[in-house]
Design a binder for these strands. Sequence first.
DNA 1: ATTGTTTTCCAAAACGTTTTGGAAATTAAA
DNA 2: TTTAATTTCCAAAACGTTTTGGAAAACAAT
Lengths: 339, 339
Amino acid sequence: MNIKKLAEKLQLSITTVSRGLGGYSDVSEATRKKIIKFAKKYNYSPNPNASNLASRKTNTLGFVIPLYGLNSNTLNQASFFEFISGMSNKINSENIQFIMKFANTIDEEKKAYDNLIKVEKVNKVILHNLKKNDPRIKFLQKNKINFVGWGRTQGRINYPWVDLDNETSTNLIMQYLYDRNHRNIAFINVDDKYNFAYQRKQGYLKFLKKNKIKFKKENYISVSYEDPDQVALVIEKKILNNSKITAIICSTEYSAAGAIKACNKANKKIGIDISLITFDGNIVNFITSPSLTAITHDRKILGSKAIEILTSETKIKNNSHYLAKPEIIERGSVLTLKK
Amino acid sequence: MNIKKLAEKLQLSITTVSRGLGGYSDVSEATRKKIIKFAKKYNYSPNPNASNLASRKTNTLGFVIPLYGLNSNTLNQASFFEFISGMSNKINSENIQFIMKFANTIDEEKKAYDNLIKVEKVNKVILHNLKKNDPRIKFLQKNKINFVGWGRTQGRINYPWVDLDNETSTNLIMQYLYDRNHRNIAFINVDDKYNFAYQRKQGYLKFLKKNKIKFKKENYISVSYEDPDQVALVIEKKILNNSKITAIICSTEYSAAGAIKACNKANKKIGIDISLITFDGNIVNFITSPSLTAITHDRKILGSKAIEILTSETKIKNNSHYLAKPEIIERGSVLTLKK
DNA sequence: ATTGTTTTCCAAAACGTTTTGGAAATTAAA
DNA sequence: TTTAATTTCCAAAACGTTTTGGAAAACAAT
């Protein structure tokens, strides 16, 4: 079924059918309804190729996933799926076309963006893993393509974005531990060149400051993703050997795994001898007994908000943004200390 | 840049440029080279919308990801990314367009396939999580759309597929354990309605038979994905309480996590008091000390083979297939018993 | 030199839409 | 009732390709 046949069935011109479906005001409500009815009946939907071609524009969302950075920066697998899941509802209901590309290298990533803009002519983009002064931003702004950042950079931001509220997260955790009388809290983070790690560090530091707790260098460590065993070793040496530390915050599931290993090795029972709280941790959170208390964010909403911003009727404001609120899931790995 | 302008630059007709780029034999080698040179120079690539429209066909691969089944059937997140990663090289080099859809429900999944075929007019599909007598197969065969299964069903198969060699995997593991003098080996599987689980069970059973070891009902348990804590409990009760069992095979990362928890609770040291070997387990494999010995498959190749089958010049044979070979990564959670 | 083949090229039609610029029909205003 | 304004519709052009059905040019055979 194509528009021509549908127009014949309806005894209307092709133009009217097209405009009716497009919701233009120059077709009466009555005929519009009839057109929609027939379109449904004959299961018609416009050929996107013809449509894009004729209108000289697309309604396509482009999205490049940097495979090379998976699990070694802001993108982890679980968060990807949640984000996508949140997006997909909106995408389906808004009838947006959706092109996703996967890049195994930085070079491929560059090519992928080029292709999206120049060949596929997408009009919306989700930008992941933004860097400071990211060239993609200028590129997109120059080409007047709507985009929203998944994650954001530091400092002044002149583009719309969605992100986890990382600073609040660590603040929340610190408060949670503080309320349970922990005063020497170790924070195992990753390199703060990653924004999420930087933000989490800020939350940690600000809480200390607010409560007039001195920052102890030895309580904060930054580990790499690369060698998990190394992580366990570092934790064992620097954290577990420090008898003052009563609680550990892990910034990633990997470091939580490392912490668990270190604790096992040092024969410290999590939730009894030492408290542990981790970000996310879908898999590791139930290995300990009692299971790990964790902090999570609703990343589904992040995905749907991103689409919302991109499709908002009004011209996208450069300060639209959304912060996913954190939530602590209590499971029992945090001990309440005596005063 | 479009084909018309490029033709002007080349002082050739649009037809010749199009056919030259398409590699047709009715344009001389000399002009073809010149065309390609100019196309590169002016950074021209055909508008896919116009191209699809004019040729009445596409070169598009469709792929529906069932989000609802994530981590609760054959699809887990890590395998998805590996598969995709393997695909993407081929996709880029073969200049295939690629549409991926995500379905949160079975209903959405159905709609997604419909959309791919009828609206997007894809000519290639990757089918995931195949069921016996899967209606999608008939649907695609009827519409003469090339497809390849990621995973396969049991029994006679009349379509091309790629899959893990699950039967060999368990066979390999069993041999590995047997060589180290384990005779009472527990296998923690998931419901064998999932084909991969069924195949793994077959490998386990066949090994027993071949080596004339009696199958002991109490050594085989099937656990669900839903409640990880429950898994740990079952393992503790049924496996760890059975003093004859010297080694455990875990079919999924989740059950390995459950096993670790159970061992911790029962105070059994993995790699010392009991041996453990798991499928995959990117995250859990380094929690224990020594780290978990695991069996993995190269899922990247699975992805690239899938594309290879779909793009093979010759008409796709219904018996093309590829089995990813397993490999044991020794880490130290398996003990060699004394004879 | 003529004819037949093969190679190399091209004009025009087609793909299925959207958009433009107006025409016809209806309603409102005078 | 006539004119003006508004509403509702439509024919034709355009989008950037591919494909069809030859035509022209080059080469080969006689």
